[in-house]
């Protein structure tokens, strides 16, 4: 299970907990739900302790749908390593710099 917190001022959706195949659709919907007009959405995954491939796929779906409006915020080291293994640093160059 995961939980979310939306900060309208910084337009940041903070997610914490575990995202797996059973909650991947909810996770994608949660990201798309906060999108409004042309305003950006920053996704903070600093509190996520587990993501499987399905969850990563769901995040990429949301990122593709939001296109320029999607921004990846904080990720913890474990999730950053997962993203690097999957080659996502091509999409999110900020992953190269270490956990944020």
């Amino acid at each position: 299970m995961f939980s979310t917190h939306w900060d309208e001022a910084s337009r940041t959706l903070s997610v914490s907990g575990e995202i797996d195949a059973s909650t991947a659709d909810s996770f994608r919907n949660a990201v798309l739900a906060v999108a409004c007009g042309d305003a950006p959405v920053r996704l903070d995954l600093g509190g996520v302790t587990f993501m499987d491939s399905t969850a990563v796929g769901a995040m990429l779906d949301a990122a593709e749908e939001l296109h320029d409006r999607f921004e990846l915020g904080a990720v913890n080291e474990r999730v950053r390593q997962l993203f690097l293994i999957l080659g996502l640093d091509e999409v999110f160059p900020e992953l190269q710099g270490g956990s944020s």
Partner: peptide, 26 residues
Amino acid sequence: MGMVRADEWRQSGLRPLIDVLLRRRL
């Protein structure tokens, strides 16, 4: 890394991973 769960593996195997790899790395 512990980023694979038994229930996901039983249901989908490598499918989700391959799909993610085909988006970028492959």
